[in-house]
Amino acid sequence: MKLISIKQAEKLLKKSIKTNKPRKITFLTKKKDRSLTIKTTTDFYFLTEKGYCNQVKKLNFNNLDDKHIVNAAFKREFPRSHWVYLIEK
């Protein structure tokens, strides 16, 4: 588990959405009470929010609206955070 800045986390999030390699990335707040997990497969990706909203969404790589959903979820779960923990698998 690494502690990274919020700007690095946003860049990593955008990079993981562009590439459709199978991987799993989890972002946690410093208190570890909120998390955002992105699990990518070859065709689509799952977005799991735990904290403010508890939901799982199945999104497409080709749809631009889905990319905005991911960014909105990131802003919703980490509104005032400057640092997040990163778990990468």
Rank of each mutant, 00 (worst) to 15 (best):
F78W: 03
K39P: 00
S16E: 12
K24Q: 12
V84L: 15
R76P: 03
H68I: 05
R80H: 11
K30I: 06
F46Y: 12
F44P: 00
A73E: 04
I25R: 07
V70I: 05
S81E: 15
N63Y: 01
R23P: 00
Y85D: 04
K31G: 01
L28M: 05
Y85T: 02
L47Q: 13
I38S: 11
K57G: 01
K24E: 14
L47R: 09
L59E: 02
N60L: 01
K21V: 15
E10W: 05
Y85W: 10
T42A: 14
K57L: 14
N62E: 12
H82L: 10
Y85H: 10
L28R: 09
T48R: 15
Q8G: 03
K50R: 15
D65Q: 08
I4N: 11
M1F: 03
I17E: 00
K32Y: 08
L3F: 02
K75P: 06
I4C: 10
L64A: 05
E88T: 12
V56L: 07
K24T: 09
L3D: 02
K67S: 08
L36T: 07
L12S: 02
L13N: 04
I38G: 11
T19G: 08
F46C: 06
T48Q: 13
S5K: 12
D65E: 12
E88R: 07
K50W: 00
K57P: 01
Q8H: 10
T19P: 00
T48C: 12
H68S: 10
L47M: 08
V56P: 03
T37C: 10
F44I: 05
F78S: 08
T48K: 15
V56T: 14
N60F: 04
L13Q: 01
R80M: 09
G51L: 08
K21F: 12
K30C: 02
F78A: 07
L28N: 11
L59I: 04
L59R: 06
K15P: 00
G51I: 04
R80W: 06
I38Q: 10
W83S: 13
N20Y: 03
T26D: 02
D33Y: 04
R23I: 08
S5I: 00
K11G: 05
V56N: 13
T40C: 14
K89I: 06
I4M: 13
F46P: 00
T29A: 13
E88F: 03
T29D: 15
I17V: 12
R23H: 08
F78P: 02
L64H: 09
K67H: 13
W83F: 06
T37N: 10
K67Q: 11
I25W: 06
Q8W: 03
I69G: 04
M1L: 09
N54R: 07
E10L: 14
L3H: 02
E10M: 06
I17A: 04
I38H: 11
T29C: 14
T19E: 15
E77R: 01
Y85L: 10
K18Q: 12
Y52R: 15
K31L: 05
N62M: 07
H68V: 04
L47T: 14
F44T: 02
A9S: 11
L86P: 11
T29R: 10
T40R: 15
I6E: 07
H82P: 01
Q55F: 02
S35H: 13
L3I: 07
R23Q: 12
N62H: 05
F44A: 00
I17M: 13
